[in-house]
Design a protein around this nucleic acid. Structure first.
Length: 788
DNA sequence: CGCTGCATGCTTTTT
DNA sequence: GCATGCAGCG
């Protein structure tokens, strides 16, 4: 550690142009731009601070101004500030905004970044302390799964009953809680058929052999280093005078421990977050971290940002009321001085297609201005769904009517097969002992090396203690490979020798090299010969990948970058409506937001409730809160009575979150004829009279709605939340027996053929065989009783 | 070795 | 309804 001060990142600012301490007590004009709470949060520089920032309250502004103020007031130099975010996007944005505030680029902020990026930087320095070399590779999920699969097979476990994905989930979970194999509690021993801990230990050992880490390890290794090398920890504790954390409610246990250790030095830690926006519990985030902050950091100052600059009062009221149902909140009261604006709009539909059709029409109309609203550009509109499979209905519809849309958060660039393959080639060219990369592409394109040949190479590598590439070379010279593989693998090994030499050559143009690797390996040709419709797109992506190389000095630098920075939002700029998941929408805002699919089981998600009970339901509710608070001017919630899920028609009740909306702030839309005629009605004539009747009144006042609400409240509220559905269903299901004649609003009359779980299997006269939730069916002689 | 055909089983997602 | 993944066949 003697060379600590010589380290680049520490060095940079000490000698850099931005010598903050020399600028002490400069005027701070940026402070005038803040409201009182924000200003307090910015000026409370010393000691622990929790900034509770509700949605749209200027959190990023406060955070970035705080950094600027730290620098400007001479409290810290840029490289003495540790500022952590969760996403690269957030880190980038923060850098930009700080720079803007100070009117200059902030080159000396090496410790502003994601948890992972900062950990990589730390781990490269101290790798040897955990038995790694500093040029370790970072595995992506794919590599991780393949590795685990090998271990599972080697351990003679049936990989069908115990899939690698499951083990990967378990291990990730343990890592999130900062459990190394020796620290996994005995209570978890039953995991993965009693062998979880054993396989976890094997996996970690294998990673070390490969000089590789997975994402969880980045944090975990650093934590281990801090816990076992007091001197290393002490230096960082001393070094980081100020620690700032964005989205604190999303931190997991490992991140929390990491932060606590680092902040112990100067105790200047400022955590920013919103317990109401904690939506990542399922991947290990602990809301408890933020709820406990004051206990963890005695003397902490808690500052609430409550003035909302984003949404109208109706929208805020709706959001606040929904989130208010949750227990154990820190509590905030958002307010705004904006004018009332539109109420939150609520509309019900027959099925998912109709919902998509209606939203499409609404979007078209809004561009010209509807109901006295200003015209809205498509760019200003977003559709936020609970699960990505809901997106398809909208894509289908929008393609049909030619409405431009963009899907945000689909499979990312780097996750695509062709990009991963190309990267694997580059990885082996740079580091010939990257076995996982070699394994990935050894038979892509086909080189006649199937299972058998690959096993032969693996064995040779193991037996001789060398990399797979070397193992392959040995097999070739020993003549262990047969047929096609023999020649082609030999050629590949030679190619890699040449590419590796060139990758090391500083005079080599790395873009040219990359192109040649892809061409000479036959990889490009493989896609050129591919007749499937996605092949041209893949070739296009490969071109883009090569183009991205321009920003880097060499292949190594590029690989390093891509392992961590994984976003690549290419957009051709035209005005488009955005379609994304609620999770993906966090942190964004749109003038007009559509929230479709508010049906019990879909949202809140049944699975979430089954797996995590009340905790799960509360997280779903926070998701609802996040969704509503994305809207600035217009928020439209909708639900459908019927939806095709996994190819089967399913009925559902409106989401319980709809019951929680404050009536005063909601306008119920019921377009004439909505339930009556039109597109979807063909083939279900049996129900049209009821549909028409329901359309006459607004949904809240209709008898059907009231009955529905009464049913929900009598059956639901007295029951424990998580069992509520099952109670309804079992009661309802048991009301029918095989052979009953029944009526369903969409499918008409039919006979009960059987009961499957909470669904009835019904043979409808017109619509054929369907599985339907019992509560949407009535005995045929009471057909008039159906809600809607 | 590689292709085809059937069985299976499904949130949310960043790094 | 669809994608993925395995077994069995050519």
């Amino acid at each position: 550690m003697s060379n600590f001060a010589e380290d680049d990142a520490f060095e940079a600012a000490a000698s850099g142009s931005l010598s903050a301490r020399a600028m002490a007590a400069r005027p701070a004009p940026y402070l005038d731009d803040l409201n009182p709470a924000q200003r307090e949060a910015v000026e409370a520089l010393d000691g622990p601070v929790l900034m509770l920032a509700g949605a749209g309250t200027g959190k990023t502004k406060a955070l970035t101004t705080r950094i600027a103020h730290l620098l400007n007031s001479g409290k810290a130099r840029p490289n003495e500030i540790l500022a952590v975010t969760f996403t690269n996007k957030a880190a980038r944005e923060m850098k930009e905004r700080v720079a803007k505030l100070l009117g200059q680029t902030v080159e000396g902020m090496p410790w502003l970044g994601t948890f992972h990026a900062i950990c990589v930087k730390l781990l490269r320095r101290h790798a040897e302390l955990v038995g790694l070399k500093s040029n370790f590779t970072i595995l992506d999920t794919d590599d991780q799964i393949r590795l685990l699969k090998q271990l599972i097979v080697a351990a003679n476990i049936d990989e069908k009953r115990w899939p690698p994905r499951m083990l990967s989930g378990i291990i990730d979970n343990w890592k999130n809680r900062a459990w190394t194999p020796d620290k996994v509690p005995a209570a978890e021993a039953s995991a993965f058929n009693q062998r979880g801990t054993e396989l976890y230990a094997q996996y970690q050992a294998r990673l070390k052999e490969l000089n590789a880490v997975d994402f969880g390890d980045l944090l975990l290794h650093i934590l281990t280093i801090f816990q076992t090398h007091a001197d290393v920890l002490a230096q960082y504790q001393r070094w980081f005078r100020y620690v700032l954390v964005d989205e604190y409610q999303d931190t997991n246990v490992a991140q929390y421990m990491w932060l606590r250790l680092l902040a112990q030095g100067h105790k200047n830690i400022c955590c920013v977050g919103d317990d109401d926006q904690s939506i990542y519990g399922w991947r290990g985030a602990e809301v408890g971290n933020i709820l406990r902050f004051e206990k963890d950091f005695p003397g902490a100052k808690v500052i609430r940002l409550e003035q909302n600059y984003r949404s109208t009062p109706h929208i805020l009221a709706a959001a606040s009321r929904v989130i208010d149902t949750n227990e154990g909140r820190l509590g905030k009261t958002l307010w705004t001085d904006k004018n009332d604006g539109e109420k939150v709009r609520l509309i019900g539909h027959w099925d998912g297609e109709e919902e998509a059709r209606w939203i499409g029409e609404e979007l078209e109309a809004m561009q010209g201005g509807t109901r006295g609203l200003r015209p809205m550009d498509l760019d200003e509109c977003a559709i936020l769904v609970r699960a990505s499979h809901q997106m398809r209905a909208f894509e289908d519809r929008f393609l049909t009517i030619g409405l431009p849309y963009r899907v945000i958060g689909g499979p990312r660039f780097y996750e695509r097969m062709e990009i991963r393959d190309a990267m694997a080639y580059f990885r082996v060219a740079c580091s010939p002992d990257d076995d996982l990369a070699f394994e990935r592409i050894v038979n892509t394109p086909k080189r006649g090396a199937g299972d058998k040949a690959q096993q032969t190479m693996q064995r040779a590598a193991r037996a001789n203690g060398v990399s797979l590439l070397e193992g392959a070379r040995l097999c070739v010279s020993a003549g262990d490979l047969t047929g096609k593989a023999k020649g082609q693998i030999g050629a590949l090994v030679e190619q890699f020798d040449r590419w590796h030499a060139r990758a090391l050559d500083p005079k080599q143009n790395h873009i040219e090299l990359a192109e040649q690797i892809l061409d000479d390996s036959g990889y490009t040709a493989m896609w050129q010969n591919d007749k499937t419709p996605e092949a041209p797109g893949r070739l296009e992506n490969l071109k883009e990948l090569v183009k991205a190389l321009e920003n880097f000095e060499n292949l190594q630098g590029f690989l390093e970058h891509v392992a961590l920075i994984m976003d690549n939002e290419t957009d051709d700029g035209g005005a488009k409506v955005s379609i994304m998941t609620l999770h993906g929408a966090k942190g964004l805002e749109f003038p007009a937001v559509f929230l479709p699919g508010w049906e019990d089981g879909l949202f809140p998600s049944q699975r979430s409730m089954d797996e995590s009970g009340v905790k799960g339901l509360e997280e779903e509710r926070r998701l609802a809160y996040v969704g509503i608070t994305r809207a600035e001017e217009l928020c439209t919630i909708s639900f459908a009575a019927n939806r095709r899920v996994y190819g089967q028609w399913q009925s559902a009740l409106p989401s319980r979150f709809i019951d929680e909306l404050p009536e005063d702030h909601v306008e119920v839309l019921t377009p004439p004829g909505l339930y009556g005629g039109g597109y979807g009605a063909a083939g279900m004539a049996g129900g049209s009279n009821i549909m028409d009747r329901a359309a006459e009144a607004n949904v809240y006042n209709s008898p059907g709605w009231k009955r529905l609400q009464a049913r929900q409240s009598t059956r639901g509220m007295s029951q424990p939340q998580e069992s509520r559905n099952m109670v309804i269903d079992s009661t309802a299901v048991s009301a029918f027996t095989q052979g009953d004649r029944v009526f369903h609003t969409k499918f008409g009359y039919g006979y009960v053929m059987g009961i499957e779980g909470d669904k009835l299997d019904i043979e409808f006269e017109k619509a054929g065989s369907k599985k339907v939730v019992a509560k949407f069916v009535v005995a045929a002689d009471r057909a008039d009783d159906v809600p809607f």
